[in-house]
Design a protein around this nucleic acid. Sequence first.
DNA 1: GCATCGCCTTGATGCAGGTCAATGCCGCGC
DNA 2: GCGCGGCATTGACCTGCATCAAGGCGATGC
Lengths: 253, 253
Amino acid sequence: MHEDVLRDVSSLFRGASAACLDGLLRRTIEHRVAPGTVLFDQAELPNFQIVLVAGSLQLFGRSGTQREVLIEVVRAPDLVIPAAVMSASPYLLQARAPEASHLLLIEADAFREAVAAEPGLAQAVIATLARQFRRMVRQAKSLKLQSSTQRVGCYLLALSERQGTPGQAHLPYEKHIIASELGMTRESFSRALASLEPAGLRVEGQVIAILDRDRLAAVAQPDPLIDPDARDDGPDASSPVLSAGAAPLHRRS
Amino acid sequence: MHEDVLRDVSSLFRGASAACLDGLLRRTIEHRVAPGTVLFDQAELPNFQIVLVAGSLQLFGRSGTQREVLIEVVRAPDLVIPAAVMSASPYLLQARAPEASHLLLIEADAFREAVAAEPGLAQAVIATLARQFRRMVRQAKSLKLQSSTQRVGCYLLALSERQGTPGQAHLPYEKHIIASELGMTRESFSRALASLEPAGLRVEGQVIAILDRDRLAAVAQPDPLIDPDARDDGPDASSPVLSAGAAPLHRRS
DNA sequence: GCATCGCCTTGATGCAGGTCAATGCCGCGC
DNA sequence: GCGCGGCATTGACCTGCATCAAGGCGATGC
């Protein structure tokens, strides 16, 4: 696996020395999972630091045997909840792969030791934790400050931007999952979409056409301090913490 | 300030070397603030890593000029949003001191450099970031999975536990602030309290008497993976990440 | 004492969004 | 073709919570 996988995750580990990474890789299991695979459940203690190399993971929160809501989505390349691994605390979420994904499993103890031993790796973990924390803060603000319809509108705006298609947004999952991510029911999500049609929206299955971006923005009132920002969203955003004294591991040829 | 202040925050920095800390302290401003002081506003870039030595800070999220909601409370000793400082990104929240508080202001650049240079300090930052991240995850789960009344009940249960008074909970702030922290209006909070009286609750101003803890728990359905856990809540919780190869900085003379 | 101001509570009302149920659509297997 | 199962939509209904408005209570000042 070595060369190509390392390149894929180099943005995560660019602060770590090659020697350290080699040592870590020896205690690493490469893993490919099919759609629907559950990586771990709520309340379990982390056995591995999972590194998402390709694909994505959905993180669900569950209440009793009742409902189950999407709290967060992890997109490659990223670390999967380093907060649980580093604090050796039970997972608060369940992780499921919505698509075929490619993972590295690093023994939790080995990972913690490597982070303690290798300052560059610690920097990378800090950057990841900080980014993920800020995403959660944005979500909390969104849930407390925006209406359902606003959240839907902002979600679509952000989605189309992330997908590089200003005129449309392709919903990445079933609508009921997106609804739970946005803190509402599928029915409310459906109605919110319908209510946004006057604002220049057309629903065509999983594809939402955005006919008038400005009008949608006027209704949804996106806020740069709430709704996703490129800076916080991708691990490849240029982040000062990574450049501080860290030599790049790989050139992206 | 040196000796006593360092003792107060030793749990945060116990991984850092004395030499490093001394260097950092030279670029540190000690600061005492009166109730109501705003430490920083949303959208500002962090100039300092603020260390909360004594007291507490409320972190508010604001939407336009409209509403303002409490997202998080930081209690001493703790770092104030290291996620913003480490990623050198704009604050997503405003910080206000509800009580007289005691702070250290460490220049942001100096702090980032110290974290990069000092593995023990990096470990401490990781532990703090991980704890704060998990708190936000709990909050998101709470907002999406629990009803208003449940959140109020669980809040009171956790509060009384944290205060060491199983029979009562003393509300730390004005009720409208707690309401916004729980994601509801003051009126709804008031009514939620009233609706819990049949479950053995008595409201006496800022003090809420819990006459029947079991009955309250039956109604509020607290979940250990949602509602505050001692482990994630205090920075003094024994956390593996801190003990990994870290020499204690100060003897507690 | 009284007036005032914050904060809280209570009530009346309305709406957003949840719940329940029926229907539609689509893909899949037979 | 048909039936079936999963998902989405739509409608009817209801409820939880927000909103608006009034009043109470306590602290403070004069």
